[in-house]
Design a protein around this nucleic acid. Structure first.
Lengths: 196, 196
DNA sequence: ATATAGGGTGAATTTTAGGTCACTTTGCTG
DNA sequence: CAGCAAAGTGACCTAAAATTCACCCTATAT
């Protein structure tokens, strides 16, 4: 039938893998969710592992495309409140966007699946955010909005707690509202401490 | 043969589940690692899921026993360097202790397995550390070692980045040395910012 | 010493899941 | 509109994995 079946398989696989893990998901569940019969999946992928592979490639490509190069760095806020606002916008998006959340959950539970998953998990959860905010914070320092300090250290100190709260939302969605408030409180604390 | 077989099964299960996940581990691997034949495991547990259950109970009990009550709170350091030193001792232990590391990895990859795993993961990765350091930091504030501020906020700001680096060690052990240096640098940054 | 229970064995069973295959349908393209 | 390739179907195969069971040790308590 459709030409987008391959994508829909990947989409269903993301949803299922992120919820039940790679080993905990079977082909039948994936195909049922796509609306084809089990064996039909082998017209698109040679094996289950190849689905994982394609999914990982897709996630890596998505990441590089959206956060990979310097062009995608966010604009430097022109005030301390601007930093808080930008942070809240980004947090809100990343917490509520289904695809992004599923990608994060998948990387969390399958980070030991292979080497590439590990690398991508580290980017997602640690280095990516830090690099991005190193740029932002360093920009705000040159604009005399923040005290002079090691931008990479501040970026790490800023993003890691936020990242921890995002993980909390992934794990216990019922705590989302609370976590978002905590992110805002933390962001405000940060600008109070480091702001000029 | 031995009477400690049940414990050895749990120990093997922890090792295997933390490396390959619950679904990714089979009974044969567990029993082989213990040194009994596959069917022998049913003399100790009624099902695979019951092994998971017992393991979780053990982890919950261990956590409560070691970090549960106020008696197990660490002593309040009497200097800023003391805080750094205590942090490094704790980080070193938690990163290198095999059992603790496996527990953390297991909770990471199986945190969505059931509700109890979620709760324990949140304690391990977020609230437990924060509570512990709220006590430490609040103690150091009354001793005029740290600036007056919200102790819970500082504890969160202090522990979350360290926690992120511990996760990095779990994921990519080859980065352990580097991560430990980063923990130390971050801890020193913290006392520089908040110390009196 | 022997009965008994708890721990261990190995073969058998059952279920599930990944994968194959021959065949049908369908949407294009010449 | 014929023909072909891609997509989809359903029956089938196979292997792996959980669990059961009848039976065998062996330590210990009477």
């Amino acid at each position: 039938m459709a030409k987008d079946t391959k994508e829909r398989i990947l989409s269903a696989a993301l949803e299922l893998f992120s919820r039940k893990g790679y080993e905990g998901t079977n082909i039948l569940e994936i195909t049922a969710s796509v609306g084809i019969v089990k064996s039909g999946i082998y017209k698109h992928f040679q094996s289950k592992e190849e689905i994982w592979d394609a999914l990982l490639n897709q996630m890596i490509a998505y990441y590089d495309e959206h956060f990979g190069s310097a062009e995608h760095l966010p604009p430097v806020p022109d005030s301390l409140d601007g930093l808080v606002a930008m942070t809240m916008r980004m947090a809100d998006f990343t917490i509520h966007d289904e695809k992004v959340m599923m990608t994060r959950k998948l990387l969390t539970i399958e980070q030991f699946h292979d080497e590439r998953a590990k690398k991508l998990a580290t980017k997602h959860f640690l280095t990516g955010l830090t690099e991005m905010f190193t740029h932002v914070i360093s920009g705000m320092m040159t604009q005399r909005l923040l005290k002079q300090d090691d931008p990479a250290m501040l970026a790490f100190a800023y993003t890691a707690p936020i990242s921890a709260l995002i993980h909390l939302c992934d794990r216990e969605p019922e705590k989302t509202e609370d976590a978002i408030r905590q992110i805002e409180a933390f962001s405000q604390h940060f600008v109070r401490i480091y702001g000029l």
